[in-house]
Design a protein around this nucleic acid. Structure first.
Lengths: 206, 206
DNA sequence: CATCGAGCTGAACAATCGTTTAGCATCCTG
DNA sequence: CAGGATGCTAAACGATTGTTCAGCTCGATG
């Protein structure tokens, strides 16, 4: 009754909405435009999803489900993140917008990813693969933020890389640069870190 | 004729638009809502800016100008970035949306920031403050992306940090965690980096 | 005083929006 | 065959949108 007819109609509308929502933003896209792209009438969209907001929530749930229970990713390591970043362009764009707009589903997803990353980093510290941190929770949050940054800045990131190369080539370059920072660090000494701590001390008792 | 009357009217409309555009997104905000917040009529908004799109471009130009030529930041080091991140909440939200929507002004700003960061990192490498990179251009782009990430994920970042503390306290924690990664690195050995290079070799000749 | 322009407004316009309603076709079930 | 879901559509409704227009006030200029 549900999964049989998913190949046509409902799913086609959802995919069309996902694509347009991601590319243009939810409120720049009309129900009629979604219907046209899906090859159906505008009324059918509302018939299936109740309202435009219902369609948005359905897209939210679908994207989150794909990231969470996606092909082989169980969110207990960070491989789910890589899967997300390799997801379809439509999903990437939609996710970026969902995080910026602060939809509840996106917020819950973010929190879960941070928790998983914190566990993963913690275990890495135990096994010696990951350096210990003065503030593991904050580090996990920042780490996730950085991994997710291409969702928002992917377009600019690709443009910043000069010359040829396919989109995957550029992605490989940027991810390699990120891993390089993660393993070698960026600053050669503790000067910036010490300066920061000095600033904090200064602010603590003015 | 221009800067004298900026304190009222035109500037008030621009500030109201900036705030609402950042908080809700450009197309979720009506001209009438902006006018109401600025305490003027809807017609005056169009009288000053020609159209809603003109108002959006004016907001773009204003934010970019504030970031570029802001108080003491000449964009020749990355201090301008810090100033940007400490800018008003409205500007932060607006900038995040501008980057996501890929407005031309935001794209140009991003490119300029990457170029400045590349120069800054390059000089750091010469003076020994910054570690050398296998791909300086890509590293600069990724670096800027990471510095800009709080624009989009700031809300989630703050929520991920448990318990008390003011907003500035949370910002201090996350920025400190970021600097920690930048100076100490995240991974304790070259395993991830080597694994990545192995993947690249594999993809090069399949 | 006359006049001109700038700041500003209320009312209206056309377009588009999300949504509702009534109804058509089709297919399964009894 | 009767009948009720189900997938789907065309047409219309009310609300809201961006924009236009005629005209008001008021201080500066001649």
């Amino acid at each position: 009754m549900r999964s049989d007819s998913d190949l046509t109609g409902r799913a086609r509308i959802r995919d069309a909405a996902l694509e347009l929502f991601g590319a243009e933003g939810v409120n720049r896209v009309s129900v009629r435009a979604i219907a046209a792209r899906a090859g159906v009438s505008a009324a059918l969209v509302l018939h299936h999803f109740g309202s435009k907001e219902g369609l948005r929530k359905a897209c939210d749930a679908y994207v989150v489900e794909m990231v969470r229970g996606g092909p082989g990713a169980d969110l207990d390591d960070v491989s789910g993140l890589a899967a997300m970043l390799e997801a379809s362009s439509a999903m990437r764009l939609y996710l970026g917008r969902a995080f910026l707009d602060g939809s509840p589903a996106a917020a819950a997803l973010f929190d879960d990813i941070v928790a998983a990353a914190e566990r993963w980093l913690e275990e890495g510290v135990r096994t010696g693969r990951v350096r210990p941190s003065d503030d593991p929770r904050a580090r996990a949050a920042v780490y996730v933020t950085w991994l997710l940054a291409p969702l928002t800045f992917g377009e600019h990131l690709a443009r910043a890389l000069p010359g040829g190369g396919s989109e995957t080539d550029r992605t490989l370059r940027t991810s390699r640069a990120g891993i390089e920072i993660f393993t070698r660090g960026l600053f050669a000494d503790d000067r910036v870190l010490d300066a920061w701590d000095a600033v904090r001390e200064e602010r603590r008792s003015p």
